[in-house]
Design a protein around this nucleic acid. Structure first.
Lengths: 341, 341
DNA sequence: TGAAATTACGAAAACGATTAAGCAACGAGC
DNA sequence: GCTCGTTGCTTAATCGTTTTCGTAATTTCA
């Protein structure tokens, strides 16, 4: 591979001069600089990131944590959308993206160790088990970290506006005439679930609507079984809801299947709403009423903040950043003419 | 950061000795080795990949090309599934995975230049525009490359068994009594399309079935518009097909919507079959008849072959590897009692 | 016992870049 | 003419490893 030395030899100067010329430093004559650049171009020179990182202590490499143990995240549109935004932004800002892993030849290594090993300048945690001590160690470390959908005192956190999302969704359903609204929420341990559920209770109170305990149920995100079971139970209640909110668009499918098996029609007999605004949610019939999460912006903003923290550590705050979602009306919530208040 | 030097000082030996001890070389006493390892552990030592890469010329880093220009691939289940398998395999074999990009600070750089810059030992091309000269340059280079769903003389190629997939699908549909089978295939420029279409013609011939030209149509992969339009035209033919094959599960949705708008029922009035076996395809009603592609295995096998090429270049062949898919019966193809042969 | 072989370590160079410090040449200012 | 400040370049050290070679100490063997 062509190195500074080769260019230096060809130009009859020292490697220092070549380095300065290519990095546009001022300590160099205009004509020499031009000549060196020309030769470097001709010889197809590109710097060696390892050598540069070693000397400058800057790798221009960012680690991204994407654990599959947390349920095959990469193949789920929400997470892959965030990753995509994250990737595009880091790349456009001159950084590369490497997956964090904990295999080191045949031994195991912690996430933190891996980050040190690879000299990551920062880390984005897109999809991980936040109960994992290794993840905690990473968040507590001196390495700049941004988290997605999780808040830790030491890290900038990006999430979509779950509070407003639920609020808009519920108010939309209310305007459509619904008063008996059930909510199948995601797993309780999740940060996101807590936000959404709290927002749900709050807006229901604001609307002076009752929330019977049996209307609030739990089912796993991105999975159909639980949603199906809970849907069945909801429909068998003495006073079933007229509309059901699901943890996300995918789990909604579980409920939809049950509803169809029972011979009921969406939205005529029962209304449903999802969350996420996945591609497929707008392709099925009826189109889902849902909150479109701006995954790309979430990823982009995470990257932007992370790189700010890396490049301007003194002036960058650790914050909670919220990205707005957008209500998609769809056709899965029926307009009730006679509203029972 | 704790370096070899620190350990050497603490142990009263030279850095050379420490290096040898930690790398389990034989040129070292058992007791010294043990002591050094112990101290290294205590001090939380981990090697610096940049220094090591610089010296050994081995980065244990693999580049993965995942262009978004090729239609937001990362968020599509097929590609993200492949990436996931690729990631898991490379990681378990002690390599890291970095996305290839062509931004270098403010300038542009080719894929190949980026690979040299980062010292990638090999490259997996998961999702790219193979017409791009930069991609071609990379495939023609001395860097080991595996391609997914594309064959180039210089690279090992992994793809799913499209020939057999189509064969199984068509024969299944035939056994269900269908004789008028239309095929909306993906874009013509694609390698995959060519394989599938050829296989389609071949198996139809084998079954002594006619393939009217108007039964063969083109629509984009992973997109609903084209499939919808073609479906409409197919259904308006004087002699419409009884079953339609789609490029993939997602584009099938486009067709499905048209079918429903026309008041037809799947599979009673018209049968449909997809390709891919996406998660959603098994969650919708009716469950789709499709070919489940083993994306994880495709990714894993690609990684395995790539690392073979890296570690044993002399004995590893450039080959075309084919991963078997699996027919999913589903319920979107109706059993015809009276078959019109 | 003495020579040869083996063992266990250290010294030093090297990978490819960056950068502080030094220095020669030159023009300006007095 | 002497000093001083610039300009433009070189020298050399350095980042954290690995690896070759040298060598002292110890063991083996005749």
């Amino acid at each position: 591979m062509v190195s500074l030395k080769d260019i230096a030899k060809r130009c009859g100067v020292s490697t220092a001069t070549v380095s300065k010329a290519l990095n546009d430093q001022r300590d160099i004559g205009e004509d020499t600089k031009a000549r060196i650049k020309q030769v470097a171009e001709e010889m197809g020179y590109f710097p060696n990131s390892a050598a540069r990182a070693l000397k400058t202590n800057r790798s221009y490499n960012i680690g991204v944590l994407f654990s599959e143990e947390a349920g095959s995240g990469l193949t789920h549109e929400y997470f892959s959308g965030v990753l995509n935004g994250f990737k595009m932004q880091t790349e456009s800002m001159g950084y590369d993206l490497t997956f964090i892993n904990n295999h080191y030849s045949n031994k195991a290594m912690s996430c933190y160790e891996h980050c040190r090993y690879r000299n990551f300048e920062g880390v984005g945690i897109v999809c991980a088990d936040f109960g994992d001590p290794g993840v905690l160690e990473l968040m507590n470390s001196e390495i700049p970290v941004v988290t997605i959908d999780y808040a830790h005192y030491n890290c900038t956190a990006i999430s979509s506006n779950n509070v407003k999302g639920i609020e808009e969704l519920v108010k939309y359903i209310y305007r459509m005439g619904h008063r008996k609204i059930a909510y199948i929420h995601g797993q309780n341990f999740s940060y996101v679930t807590k936000e959404r559920l709290t927002s749900f209770y709050r807006v229901m109170e604001e609307l002076h609507l009752k929330v019977p305990d049996e209307y609030i149920r739990e089912a796993a995100y991105l999975e159909t079984e639980g949603a199906a079971r809970q849907t069945k139970e909801l429909l068998n209640l003495p006073e079933p809801p007229t509309c059901i909110l699901y943890p996300d668009d995918t789990s909604l499918i579980g409920g939809k299947n049950v509803i169809m098996e029972l011979g009921l029609k969406i939205p005529n007999d029962i209304s449903v709403a999802g969350y996420d605004g996945t591609r497929i949610s707008q392709l099925v019939h009826p189109e889902l009423t849902t909150i479109m999460q701006d995954t790309e912006s979430i990823g982009r903003e995470a990257a932007r903040r992370l790189i700010d923290t890396i490049e301007k550590p003194k002036t960058t705050l650790v914050e909670r950043v919220v990205i707005e979602g957008r209500l998609i009306g769809g056709n899965s919530v029926n307009e009730l003419t006679q509203s029972i208040s």
